[in-house]
């Protein structure tokens, strides 16, 4: 690794100031589980690491059924999984957070970092997209909110400027009859990168009819994205077998996978449909329990 400097600001403003020193080639260090590997391999460069883990505001983790979820940018995945209200309200997001790497990695890696790293295969990203999460971005002059679905633009690239900081992720409280789920296909049972990942949020009414749905696909395009036709096809159905098959078919159609070391395009397209069926069915099952 090249020479580095390290700083650990204790406020967002202090962090932003450091991130503004472009001559020092600064970069945000949260969990570090992607960044340190990238710095060592030369895939990314930095001369100043701004460790945001000592900023109280970025360690906020709050969830309740009225106000929803506030998830600070430095909160490790393990804490999300251990948070009773988060588990209860956002089982799909928790499933995704608990799939990232090992226990060791989950104790460091953050949901925000998973998003900002911009991997097409990031597990929590489809889960966040399915929940229509928003990101609070602090920049040099002001704070702004953007949809999680708009943060990543291409593999490894985001809309964030060098001196922007993702302070917090927010998710609305789930509506009545609404629930989420996430599944991925990996060849092993742990310690792997999604070959396909699918997150879904499904809302059903009292007689089991779907009133709203969001389906997000990971690892089958240059970035995670919403499969809007597949989601729309569910609305008005009872989320029965025929509806699941149709949603799966449309998800496969929406997938734009490539062939790489982790799977062929053909395989990914097919499995995107399979997982969509399974994930939607699970989200709908959970939704029905919330009527």
């Amino acid at each position: 690794m090249h020479e580095l400097q390290y700083s650990s600001p204790t406020s967002v403003d202090e962090a932003l100031e450091m991130l503004g020193e472009s001559s020092r080639d600064p970069r945000v260090l949260a969990g570090g589980t992607d960044l340190l590997i990238q710095l060592r391999s030369g895939a990314r460069h930095a001369r100043l690491l701004v460790d945001v883990k000592r900023i109280p505001e970025m360690n906020v983790l709050h969830a309740d059924a009225r106000t929803g979820l506030r998830l600070g940018g430095a909160v490790p995945c393990a804490l999300v999984g251990e948070h009773p209200a988060a588990r209860e309200l956002y089982p799909g997001l928790v499933e995704a957070a608990e799939l990232i790497g090992s226990t060791q990695i989950q104790n460091r890696a953050t949901v925000a970092g998973n998003l900002c790293n911009g991997s097409p295969a990031a597990d929590t990203t489809p889960a966040l997209l399915a929940l229509d999460a928003t990101c609070t971005i602090a920049g040099p002059s002001r704070r702004r909110e953007i949809a999680a679905s708009e943060l990543v633009t291409a593999p490894g690239r985001t809309v964030l400027a060098a001196n922007d900081l993702l302070v917090e992720i927010r998710v609305a409280a789930p509506a009545r009859g609404s629930a989420d789920a996430y599944q991925r296909l990996i060849p092993r049972s742990e310690m792997d990168i999604a070959v396909v990942g699918v997150g879904a949020s499904v809302t059903v009414d009292a007689d089991g009819t779907c009133t709203a749905a969001r389906i997000a696909l990971g690892a089958v395009g240059p970035r995670a994205f919403l499969a809007e036709d597949a989601a729309a096809s569910l609305v008005g159905t009872k989320v029965d077998e025929a509806a699941l098959v149709e949603a799966g078919r449309l998800a496969s159609e929406a997938a734009q996978p490539i062939s790489d070391k982790r799977g062929t395009a053909e395989y990914r397209r097919e499995v995107a449909g399979v997982l969509t069926r399974r994930v939607v069915a699970e989200a709908a099952r959970r939704g029905r329990e919330r009527i």
């Binding site: 570090g32 690491l49 460790d51 104790n107």
Partner: peptide
């Protein structure tokens, strides 16, 4: 918490 010490900078353990 158990972590991989290869993915922690020594500077972080103050």
């Amino acid at each position: 918490r158990v972590v991989c010490s290869c993915l922690v900078l020594a500077a972080e353990v103050e």
